[in-house]
Design a protein around this nucleic acid. Structure first.
Length: 860
RNA sequence: GCCGGAGUGGCGGAACGGCAGACGCGGUGGAUUCAAAAUCCAUUGAGGGCAACCUCGUGAGGGUUCAAAUCCCUCCUCCGGCACCA
């Protein structure tokens, strides 16, 4: 009687053996095709959850399958270890972030090993380790050299809870902190930036190269970058009489075609000219009220969605450069200082916001672009002068149309990027008052953080020399570990850290005490994995040339913008530094879905957590891996179901018993079990040489299913449809059980072939049980199943000799014909006619279509 | 508002424009058992018929096609992202 399936025993046994033998280690091998399989490395937040299990199982299956398909596979693991949670937890527990971090890493590492993930652990990275973060500092200096680092004072996002500034990407839609969900405030502070906007166009363009990225991630990035085409138009400031002064303001617009409809002009409340215009005038008080209201509003009103349009007249005027009209200058709360130029030409008839503002303050709404079907068009079609100052519309009209009341441009087609846009910009350009331009929504990346647990920014403030980079040979700037941070102290409270001599002039200077955003650490870690133990460089060119780019990258959709945009930016910068010879770091991206419970996100505070620590000891890692891969396609959310876990456990049990019984029978018969794979291959080959006619029907069927399902599972794993790949393996198991009803089923070489294919294809998903059964089958001395070749299939064996085709009459299935698989279409057609003769009667056949191997359809 | 994605049995989910519901869960019946668990075998979209079979079925409504879950148009619902970006 076969042994019981005891997952815990065999899993721990094989995990130890794999670790000792180092079978998952990899080295550069120019003779072998490489595959770099990577999952987004975890934050060491505590014990792992099902999301981790899913993420890393997906990657592991890809890596293992690739290894068996003959690739030299790099599959590494590390930790993104700097950041606020460590610091907050340490403050709470009166510990140190380093202690908390390394403890958690130990727990997670152990847990990942218990899952049987096939990492090359020699390449482990921990980003808070000086051996790693020194290279982050080095990259900062290199970017500084290239002019990509900037320190500037501007309104920034401040999270009061985290007591630090945040990047735009880290403020979520409703104005809250991505980490703690507190409401973010605006503060005017001097901060460090990476000039990601220098790469805005390329970051947008190269999305086209990413054929194997999900469409939605690319769309999200494109929206975030937010390219818009339009023109800069310059309005000169004029006096009360309309006489131009030598001062001017430039606006950005996407609709230069509507310029004749500009009936007022807007400045952002924070615009520097507002003070100059209004100081000491009767308009000062009103403007100040709007400025103050809008400063309060940004925090509060955004929450409610729509803020009421507010504004005030500044008492000043500008001249419309296209027609010399005198236009009043207002301030308005909906004009943003940090987009475009902070000033807007308002065209209420062509913009809903301007329309609303104009209605509210009783300003003119002259129509300039009118829809083809608007009755207004017939009355105004030929009007080049302003005859109608107002419309009776409910909103502005933003669609395409015809220009009216627009001087020489009247009658032209208007709208976004229209001929009128080009003509008007051209006319303005001749007078130096306009030029076509492009604007991006993307802002520079604010990377400084006023927190302790991060990579120190390697810069020094010298009163004499200004900002001086730390000389390269002095790297790394070590983050001191002896700080008592229990009260939330930062580097700013540690004189032994910040008191330094200026590297340039030797005067007493102050080291920068801000640290870098953790996202800087994760923006290049995939490159370090290629050469993790290099202590002379961030990574060698050779290792990057061989291993990069990452072939398969798996991680959560929450990084659709953040990490994935930053990493693309770093890659392009390093390419321009001649460190890399490619444009994009991640060839293929798989965004895995969440693991939920009863449709809800698992959450510590809700207490609805299913932990791998409780499920794995009970069912084994193989069952958990298999379940997670089977229950949904990898990119979809998955609802945890205890019954589903049982089902996967049952399936593995079926495989266990099938192979166990096979081995037992063979041992009794003194055959098969002793064969190693070479001998078996020879046996199988010789059998293939014999005539098919010697096969029984059952053998024919088993062979056909084995080859068909091998093809199916192989294809499905290739396209990462692991759920259907597992379904195919279940079918193969069922086919073997079916064949088991035959007498002497163990004698047939097709049983051996089926079991061989089943175990090998199941190996990436359930690595332990398959390894154990593989050794049962072939003996302890045989090489691991995980270094075996992936099974192949013979297309000739996939098709049966005869096939049954459905026959349709007028679109409905009315019968079936059994024909030879290679029968000519004419033969099939005749057979089909006979099969459905009842339904044809004497009707004339109008059309007869044979879709080979699929269907016959007859139209009468 | 704009941009994406998705709506298929009791449930999770399958289906290069070609037999809708693979595979699994759950259910039902049987074998085994003193009994149960486990296991094995069979069955399982809905409705009708003794039956071979028939009818209806992929969010709703139209269309293209010999043939539509799949392609096109209109609409509804849900999920996600962005949002006063001029």
């Amino acid at each position: 009687m076969a042994r019981d399936y005891n997952p815990e025993n065999i899993e721990l046994k094989w995990q130890a053996i794999w670790e000792d033998s180092g079978i998952y280690h990899c080295e550069i091998d120019p003779d072998k095709p490489k595959k770099y399989v990577l999952e987004m490395f975890p934050y060491p937040s505590g014990s792992p959850h099902m999301g981790h299990v899913r993420n890393y199982t997906i990657g592991d299956v890809i890596a293992r399958a690739a290894r068996m398909r003959g690739y030299n596979v790099l599959h590494p693991m590390g930790w993104d270890a700097f950041g606020l949670p460590a610091e907050n937890a340490a403050i709470k527990q009166n510990s140190h972030p380093a202690v908390w971090t390394y403890q958690n890493i130990e727990v997670q590492e152990k847990s990942f090993k218990r899952m049987g993930f096939s990492y090359d652990w020699r390449r482990k990275i921990v980003t808070c380790d000086p051996e790693y973060y020194r290279w982050g500092q080095w990259l900062f200096l290199k970017m500084h050299e290239r002019g990509l680092v900037e320190r500037k004072k501007s309104p920034v996002n401040w999270c009061p809870e985290c007591a630090t500034v945040l990047a735009n990407e880290q403020v979520e839609g409703d104005g809250v902190c991505w980490r703690c969900a507190s409401r973010v405030e605006k503060r005017n502070l001097a901060q460090w930036y990476f000039k990601i906007t220098d790469y805005a166009q390329e970051l947008l363009d190269d999305l086209d190269q990413l054929e194997l990225w999900p469409e939605r991630v690319k769309t999200m990035q494109a929206n975030w970058i937010g390219r818009s085409t339009g023109a800069n138009i310059t309005f000169s400031i004029c006096d009360e009489q309309g006489e131009s002064t030598d001062q001017a303001i430039t606006v950005y617009t996407t609709r230069p075609d509507t310029l004749f409809g500009c009936s007022f002009f807007l400045l952002a409340p924070e615009h520097p000219l507002v003070e100059e215009f209004t100081a000491g005038t009767p308009y000062e008080a009103d403007c100040r009220a709007v400025i103050e209201a809008s400063a309060r509003e940004t925090a509060v009103e955004r929450e409610s969605g729509i803020a009421e349009k507010q504004g005030a007249f500044t008492g000043r005027f500008v001249v419309n450069p296209i027609n010399g009209a005198k236009v009043p200058v207002w301030i308005a709360n909906y004009v943003l200082m940090d987009y475009g130029t902070g000033a807007v030409m308002a065209v209420p008839s062509g913009d809903d916001r301007d329309f609303e503002f104009a209605r509210h303050y009783g300003l003119d709404i002259p129509p300039v672009v009118v829809a083809e079907d608007d009755p207004l068009l017939s009355t105004l079609r030929d009007e080049s002068d302003l005859v109608q100052k107002n419309v009776d519309w409910d909103t502005g009209y933003t669609g395409p149309g015809v220009l009216v009341q627009s001087g020489p441009f009247t009658g032209m087609k208007g709208g976004k990027d229209s001929e009128a846009c080009r003509a008007i910009v051209e006319a303005l350009a001749t007078e130096g008052k306009g030029e076509a331009t492009v604007n991006f929504r993307l802002r520079d990346w604010l990377i400084s953080r006023q927190r302790y647990w991060g990579n120190p920014i390697p810069m020094i403030h010298c009163d004499v020399c200004g900002l001086i980079p730390v000389p390269e040979e002095q790297l790394p700037v070590i983050l001191p570990l002896d700080l008592d941070i229990s009260k939330g102290a930062t580097l700013d409270s540690d004189p032994s850290f910040y008191e330094v001599d200026c590297p340039a002039c030797g005067a007493q200077a102050k080291r920068e005490t801000d640290t870098m955003d953790t996202f800087t650490c994760s923006s290049w870690y995939f490159l370090r994995f290629a050469d993790a133990r290099n202590d002379e460089q961030a990574f060698s060119k050779k290792s990057a040339d061989y291993w990069m780019p990452v072939d398969n990258y798996t991680g959560g959709i929450e990084h659709a913008i953040l990490h994935l945009l930053y990493s693309r930016f770093f890659t392009k910068v390093m390419r321009d530094m001649d460190m890399l010879n490619f444009d994009e770091p991640f060839k293929q991206l798989l965004t895995q879905g969440m693991v939920k419970l009863d449709g809800e996100k698992m959450n510590k505070s809700k207490g609805n957590i299913v932990s791998p620590d409780e499920v794995v000891p009970r069912y084994g890692a193989d069952t958990v891996r298999g379940y997670i891969m089977f229950m949904a396609p990898p990119d979809k959310d998955l609802d945890w179901s205890p019954d589903g876990v049982e089902g996967m456990h049952r399936f593995l049990g079926r495989v266990w018993r099938l192979v166990g019984e096979y081995v037992d029978t063979c041992v009794l018969a003194g055959s098969a079990s002793a064969t190693n794979s070479d001998e078996e291959a020879i046996v199988r080959q010789s059998l293939r040489d014999t005539q098919d006619a010697s096969l029984t029907d059952a053998e024919q069927t088993l062979r056909r299913l084995t080859h068909k399902l091998t093809k199916k599972a192989t294809d499905d794993i290739d396209r990462q449809q692991f759920n259907t790949a597992i379904a195919a393996l279940m079918e193969l198991t069922n086919a073997l059980y079916d064949f088991k009803k035959q007498d002497n089923w163990t004698d047939s070489v097709y049983t051996a072939e089926g079991i061989d294919a089943l175990l090998k294809m199941l190996a990436p998903i359930a690595p332990h049980i398959t390894e154990e059964l593989w050794r049962d089958l072939h003996g302890e001395q045989v090489e691991s199943i995980h270094v075996q070749d992936w099974p192949s299939y013979n297309p000739d064996y996939v098709v049966a000799d005869t096939i049954e085709l459905p026959v349709q009459v007028n679109g409905k299935i009315r019968g079936r014909v059994e024909v030879a698989a290679d029968a000519a279409d004419e033969v099939v057609a005749e057979a089909a006619k006979i099969a459905v003769s009842d339904h044809i009667d004497d009707e004339e056949i109008k059309k007869l279509i044979v879709v080979p191997g699929r269907i016959v359809t007859i139209v009468i």
